[in-house]
Computed example of a mutant assay.
Amino acid sequence: MKFDIPIARSMVVACLLSLSLPVVAQEPVLDQLDQAREKGSLEVAVYRDFPPYSYLDQGQYIGVDVDLAKAISQKIGLPLRLRTIIAGDDADDDLRNNIWKGHYLGGGVADLMLHVGMDPQYVKRQEKADLIGPYFHEAVSIAYRPGRYKNMATPLSLVGTKVGVELGSMADLYLSGAYGGRLRTAAERLPTAMAAVQAFANDEVDAVMAPHGELQGLLKIIGGPPIETRTTEIQGLYRTAWDVGMAIKAGNPKLKAAVLDALAKLQQSGELQAIFARYGIDYVAPEMAVAAAP
């Protein structure tokens, strides 16, 4: 094979330069727990405007997830740095922007993210985030006043009544499509779950449908009426029950171990259950087993 003289010379020069360059050892990447200790705080992401889990009250963020973030940070031995986030178009957006890559506008990533849906298939297909530590089981429920319905054996009892739901929520999708669409006309779509619960408290709708923990917490916030609740069963493609857990960036075994150890201690001591009770929520243990730390 023939080379042009200029190309041949440039190749020789490049080879000589490469031989003369010192070999620089690549420093190992610190586990995110070590990075957090260097920073002096554990940054935990929670959703903004998400009562009763994380919301602004008198200038401070409070809620189940805020208290849980504080408790985990305390168990790990680091001050909490709270990151309040706005939900993206889907959970993948939230994990990318807040856990393993960061938003294109900057701001870095958090060490830990709370209130992540733990669907088993979704957990398995994650490569850049570890979904760990399920800490609560949630299920869509119907809240209604005692005596308002003669029979609530199935959600079909809602036909012909008004049911407040958050626009675009799982409850909205459920009423729109379950039972061949027979519940579609029952849905009274409101901008937020809080607005739906407020309409129920004001007797503007006959019932309200939302995740059970959210319903209980919102009714406590607004001082709602005595209610009866019924958890709906799964129908067709609609998953109406799921575990809630946490996420960290994949490849951080020390952080994973520390978070799982902190969560186990909170569960065993009853502190986790007490956090939920503080906000009017009956604690329901997750159905998924907590994966052991490596």
Rank of each mutant, 00 (worst) to 15 (best):
D172A: 14
D172P: 04
L173F: 12
S176V: 01
A178T: 14
G180W: 10
G180Q: 10
R182L: 15
R182M: 05
R182V: 04
R182F: 13
A186V: 03
A186Y: 09
A187E: 07
A187W: 01
A187Y: 10
A187R: 01
R189L: 02
R189A: 13
L190G: 00
T192Q: 14
T192L: 12
A193D: 12
V197G: 07
Q198N: 09
Q198E: 12
F200T: 00
F200M: 05
F200A: 05
N202K: 10
N202Q: 14
D203T: 10
D203G: 06
E204P: 01
E204G: 04
D206F: 13
A207N: 08
A207F: 06
V208R: 01
M209W: 03
A210L: 13
A210I: 06
A210V: 06
Q216C: 10
G217Q: 02
G217K: 03
L218T: 03
I221N: 04
I221H: 07
G223L: 12
G224K: 01
G224N: 04
P226A: 11
I227M: 05
E228M: 08
T229E: 13
R230S: 14
T231D: 14
T231Q: 15
T232W: 07
I234C: 11
Q235E: 15
Q235P: 00
G236K: 10
G236Q: 07
G236M: 04
G236P: 04
L237E: 09
T240C: 01
D243E: 05
V244S: 14
V244P: 02
G245S: 10
M246D: 07
M246T: 03
M246N: 10
I248H: 09
I248G: 13
I248Y: 11
K249P: 01
G251C: 01
G251Y: 01
G251D: 05
N252D: 13
N252I: 06
P253I: 03
P253F: 11
K254L: 15
K254Q: 11
L255A: 12
K256W: 11
K256M: 09
K256R: 15
A257F: 09
A257V: 05
A258K: 09
L260V: 01
D261A: 15
A262E: 13
A262W: 03
A262I: 08
A262R: 05
L263A: 00
A264R: 12
A264G: 06
A264Q: 12
A264Y: 13
A264W: 06
K265C: 02
K265L: 07
Q268M: 05
S269C: 02
S269Y: 04
G270L: 03
L272H: 11
Q273F: 08
A274I: 07
I275S: 05
A277L: 09
R278E: 06
R278C: 05
R278S: 11
